[in-house]
Design a binder for these strands. Sequence first.
DNA 1: GTAGGGTTAG
Length: 623
Amino acid sequence: MIKPSIISRSYYSNSWNIQLREVAKDGYFKECIEIYRQMLRHGDSPDSFTFPFALKSCASLSLPISGSQIHSHVIKTGCEPDPFVQTSLISMYSKFSLIDNARMVFDENVHSRRLTVCYNALLAGYTHNSQPLKAMLLFQKMFSSDVPFNNITMLGVIPACALPENIGFGMSLHGCNVKYGTDCDSFVVNSLLTMYVKCGSTELARKLFDEIPQKGLISWNAMISGYAQNGLATQVLDLYSEMKFFGVEPDPVTFVGVLSSCTHLGAQRIGLEIEQRIARSNFGANTYLTNALINMYARCGNLARARKLFDVMGEKNIVSWTAMIAGYGMHGHGDIAIELFNEMKLTGIRPDGTAYVCVLSACSHAGLTDKGLGYFKEMERDYGTRPGHEHYACLVDLLGRAGRFQEVKELIDSMPMKPDGAVWGTLLGACKIHGDVKLAELAFERVIELEPTNVGYYVLLSNIYTNAENMEGVARVRVMIRERKLRKEPGCSYVELKGKVHLFVAGDRNHPRTNEIYEMLNRLEELIEESYGTEAKNEKLRRSEETTSTSAGVHSEKLAVAFGLLNTTADTEIVIIKNLRICGDCHLFMKVVSEVVNRGILVRDASRFHHFKDGTCSCNDYW
DNA sequence: GTAGGGTTAG
């Protein structure tokens, strides 16, 4: 039998092929295409050695038309059966997202259906083109047809399982790797680690991580980013210290993960440390890193610092702009957010779905209702971005805050998809602002159908009843919570001081400075009483005492603010972070404290800031 | 002589 690779091999092609190899080795793909064109002009016929270079160059340079032209040359010269050519074609079409063409090449050649490399290329193609199911099916076919697989097969198919619903398949691949020894490859291990992380199973990822005998930088990064993506910010910081302890040098990827956790924790001080470390390590020009820094400062409330980084950075991409817009939006500077958003469009950057979420929420916080409505219309009309659930939730928030409930109802009815929990939950939040008990009951009913175990909504409704002095309603919600065996997560709050995060839970007495903290709390009570008198104090604090049930009656945020007051000077603002999606009524207490101590106090929860100063509150009660 | 791959931000 003639080996396919020597079909149509010609003497004249040889010198061209040698040139191609030299040039491709160094990644000069433009030059490769040029040599290929010259070859054709000379009347020399490309052969099975020529095509892989030419096809790979087209793939790298994103030249789909040239790619399909070369495919026709492949057919003309009869090089189709060559396994190298087939693999190159499959890989090229996959990179152009023309996955059906890739599949056709695979199916039309008897050879490919027995070849590991062709399976590998197609598997990676399905995975990268968001068709995980097809990737998994293809692997099964490969397995059952006894086509041998290798570590590269695994790298193609493992990421297909990076969805919570596919974790079972992922675990069986893990088993497969152990059985066939492909798990010794560090690439495969890192890929498995990432797969577990993306499935949301940081425990399994950590177990695997701990079993790696010699962890490389990428394993550390995968684990750190994994914790960061799953919101386990304290674990990120712990692992980062561990990494430093083992003498592993961090790179930009590490820093991006750590910075994202600083953002979650509001740990600006630790973020600053990282920034200085970045400055020392010459990673300054990395766009990912600068974006992470901008995001961290913007969300932590240091808009000036964020803006400075933003203004001096070289190439701003959509993420840089969005981070800045979101920062202004969440701190009540809706006007600047909008200005920046318009400026971004002028520079030719097309806003995407996330950018619209940020600008809509900025409008909502600044009370720019009609501007927000305009942006909502523009997003699909001018940019072809279909509004998703999150955009509808923003719009409900926008209209709901403005008390335009009739329009909210019309909007919800007009939604092309079923409204999700966020939409009804946002409406519930708006009902709290306007004290609309009837609509709140409707929104509650809907949201509970969708998220029956989200205790935050029960608390919210209970607060609405409290405000309306409907004690029967409050009791009814309490019974529901008890009957459904729901428990309010133990709220915890933390405050960052001198680069250390201090965490408190309700009634906490574990902090080494517990006595001082409780003394400070007593002094605060006295101060409030002095300022408002007993009656008013009780009136002002009543709701927060009643609606948030804690065993000791001392909520975590009170401890955090007391600790903050003990450790900062009069001119610094105190930032407290709550781990709950819904802040409950800690605002009331903070507002009062902020007035009596004449200090800015910032309470942050999952995604937004609540700012109290001089009795003003630019916050939303719910998110 | 040529083909297939892991970690990063809003």
